[in-house]
Design a protein around this nucleic acid. Sequence first.
DNA 1: AGCTGATCATAT
DNA 2: ATATGATCAGCT
Length: 224
Amino acid sequence: MVTRPPLSENELLENASKIAGKTLQQIAIKQGIETPEDQHRHKGWIGQLLEHSLGATAGSLPEPDFLHIGVELKTLPLNHLGTPKESTYVCAINLTSPESRWENSLVKHKLSRVLWLPVEADPDIPLAARRIGSAILWSPDKDQESVLRRDWEELMDMIAMGELEQITAHQGQYLQIRPKASNSKALCKGINSEGEEILTLPRGFYLRTILTRQILIQHDLKIK
DNA sequence: AGCTGATCATAT
DNA sequence: ATATGATCAGCT
């Protein structure tokens, strides 16, 4: 099944509503794709399945999933309580020439328009049987953006000061910085407090579940 | 049970 | 090594 890229947000939402309630296996069969037993060696499988299913264009290019309508697709794994089970990866961080302004940052741009697609992720449900939920088209509201901005500025200040080795995932209310690498031996360049080049773990920005939980709640309240 | 640090796959 | 897509798994 070939899915044409959506030409508008409404078309994207309509396409998303058509797969709401379906199982991952139902979608995979339509795509002619095998469903793996589990995600241990297929961590990105659901995201890529749903990208294809909704006609995303970007592939592994540094572009929004739906380029011409400027929308990013994020799956949102839900536990047995229906709340987010995992944090959400946003983007990698250039540690040698850190961005200086929130307004121009990759995080702000990536999060400016996101289609959240909830998916059951209770480990008791076999991967093939997990159902897709109702999509949420989201942009940060004023309060959310101000917290994101504060977190980003605090963390990027530390990187700019050469304090990246002092950064821990404990920092940040909505945004946190964690390793984003193949393993702990895959290193990249960074800058220390003396301005010298060092080798360090690649890092990425992640959204805490406290924010994605809030997004789900906001949406539910809007429906009712 | 939640969270942080580590890890897995694929394409370029 | 970097981009994409994320989840795993041990510790508190």
